[in-house]
């Protein structure tokens, strides 16, 4: 039987918690950035675009290191957060979520941007002639029609978060019960003698989680595409 040990449970729950919060917090920002990139023209747009995509091409360790410099207890931002809001993210699970969110951000933006770009701007013009404000058009026309891309982006980023390793271990280290997510736990087990069997078990769990996430998102994407095309009944 494939019964999970309490430690394994803890790792899975922590991994899901980190991935869930990283996706949830980066989603609104990713939608806003995707909308800007898809619809707005402004000076420095290509630089901004490159900046958004940076985590995709940089070594994750570099991202983690910069996060540590910035958000560490003595980092400029980290010190401010600690002093005024009492928030500490370094070496905490919330820091792992931030690292994972940043690493998955370009994937999320890309998918959402593509689906916004595929929307006929004529529909938005039609909404304007009917008296809608830009904000209302965004929530009543653009966003519902971009949902397939939002779901795809969410999944890609969620999967990326579950697998995040380099930035996480550099920024928040590898603390059992706090920042030791699945990939970190697997890595740790491969470093100790006799840990192979346990590492394999966790690897299988990782595969199962990924497949479930993939299937769920496929289903959501298909559903939302049908809705957007108006074939759901």
């Amino acid at each position: 039987m494939f019964a999970l040990s309490p430690v394994e449970w803890e790792i899975i729950q922590l991994s899901l918690k980190v991935a869930f919060w990283s996706v949830l917090c980066s989603l609104p920002l990713a939608v806003a950035v995707a909308f800007l990139l898809a619809r707005a023209e402004f000076p420095g747009k290509s630089l901004f675009d490159a900046l958004v995509h940076l985590p995709l091409v940089l070594p994750p360790v570099v991202v983690g290191y910069f996060l540590l410099l910035l958000l560490g207890r003595r980092g400029p931002l980290g010190a401010l957060l600690d002093e005024y809001l009492g928030i500490v993210v370094a070496f905490r699970w919330s820091g792992a979520a931030i690292a994972a969110g940043i690493m998955g951000f370009p994937l999320m933006v890309r998918a959402i941007r593509l689906s916004i770009e595929a929307i006929d701007t004529g529909l938005e013009d039609a909404a304007r002639t009917l008296g809608a404000t830009r904000l209302r058009i965004f929530f009543s026309v653009t966003l519902p029609l971009a949902l397939p891309g939002v779901f795809t982006g969410t999944l890609l980023s969620f999967a990326r978060s579950l697998g995040e390793f380099g930035a996480t271990i550099t920024f928040v280290s590898n603390i059992p019960g706090e920042t030791r997510t699945l990939p970190l736990a697997i890595y740790t087990l491969t470093q100790v003698p006799g840990g192979d069997a346990a590492a394999l078990r966790l690897s299988i769990i990782a595969i199962v989680l990924s497949v479930i996430a993939l299937m769920l998102s496929e289903w959501l994407v298909r559903r939302s595409q049908q809705r957007a095309r108006g074939h759901d009944d």
Partner: peptide, 19 residues
């Protein structure tokens, strides 16, 4: 602004909201 003009527009392709 367009939304304050109160000018209705029937487009060639209809442009109904598909969702």
């Amino acid at each position: 602004p367009v939304r304050r003009r109160r000018v209705g527009y029937v487009f060639q392709e209809g442009r109904l909201f598909p969702h």
